[in-house]
Nucleic acid binder design. Structure first.
Lengths: 195, 195
DNA sequence: CGACTGACCAAAATAACAATTCGGTCAGTC
DNA sequence: GACTGACCGAATTGTTATTTTGGTCAGTCG
């Protein structure tokens, strides 16, 4: 659809912005930067996006869409809930690059508390939780797991996942991928009680 | 032991400091303030404490000691692990005033990132985790719960507790005390798997 | 004496102001 | 008419003046 002679400006801008946000954070990326990275005049950016905030939203939306796609193509409706959960975690854990934007943003929130970064992260969190919640609800309806409030359960799952990976590096050494999976299954699915 | 005519300066100072730290945070508390609150000359404070940091440490240590005492007197070795865990949570949840210092400090860390407040909170977290970890280890040794790394387990427990109480007020309405207990038992002890 | 005080000091925090950067515009080019 | 980049004012950052605060100690009082 796209000739070599007519480069897709919008795509150039979006990709440059994605790289820049992931590398320098929200505050750290300037529109001049994005323009230069995209090899585009600054004004061109504003023909596609009303302002920096809208550009950022588009990138975040893309991230959410990509994550959802990865999850969707990993989930196999024929498999048990716990297996799907593990498989999705597995793939998400592998996707270091996809994470880098989220990692950079949460670092930015911690260090300088940029409101937009915080907002973006909250949007991402909401999206993840509602995605998980949907699957939790289905699993509960099918009787694959015990009945439980889906949103709260999804929230707890996310918190456990983060506790095992991102946070708590003070306490335990960063766990390997397999350890994370094993521990997550242990604490979240199986529980501490004797079986 | 203490006559009415010879008020216990040290105690006056400690109590004034505890109130002030809980009300205004670490940074918000000035030594002049503490002196005035304690009805004591500022110099007097320094006959007991080398500096503001040491005064703060004493208050934090006191908090930890009190929490531990509450926990200890609640734990009944004859009861099962899960019951003791629930009972301690129950009492700690009631102790809103004891919490207020910790609440104020974490708020301070979030808003202005005072290093001392951060440090104090970390000390508190470490103390709580090591306390829980000891009991987890005992329970595991006695075969009351499944074998697991005590420190990591304690860490996960604390994170779940916080997710159900302090954090995540964006997502779910603040849970009532009984709901917190029920949910904690559900997610932490029993697990999502069918029994 | 010695417990206690509060005026005092240097250092750190804050406010006030100047210099720079950055998001956003638009006249002009190709 | 798609695209550019010099340009503008608002916002951020750097700098200096002012105030606040942790900590000291000569002096008071019992």
């Amino acid at each position: 659809m796209q000739e070599r002679e007519t480069p897709d400006r919008r795509k150039q801008v979006a990709e440059a912005a994605a790289r820049s946000f992931a590398t320098f954070g929200y505050k750290g990326t300037t529109m001049d930067q994005v323009a230069k990275l995209a090899q585009v005049g600054k004004g061109t950016i504003y023909t596609f996006y009303a302002n920096k905030e809208e550009l950022f939203d588009e990138i975040m939306t893309g991230l959410i869409r990509d994550l959802r796609a990865v999850a969707d193509e990993t989930v196999d409706p024929k498999l048990p809930f716990a297996d799907n959960l593990m498989n999705v975690l597995h793939r998400v854990l592998d996707f270091r690059d996809r994470h880098s934007l989220a990692v950079k943003l949460s670092q930015e929130v911690r260090d300088i508390g940029t409101p937009m970064a915080k907002e973006g992260l909250e949007t991402l969190e909401k999206a993840i939780i509602s995605y998980i919640a949907r699957h939790v609800k289905e699993a509960a309806d099918k009787g694959e797991i015990r009945p439980c409030p889906p949103e709260l359960t999804a929230y707890m799952m996310l918190k456990m996942y983060l506790a095992l990976t991102a946070e708590g590096r003070h306490l335990h050494e960063p766990l390997g991928k397999d350890e994370v999976l094993e521990r997550f299954r242990f604490y979240c699915i199986e529980g501490l009680a004797l079986r």
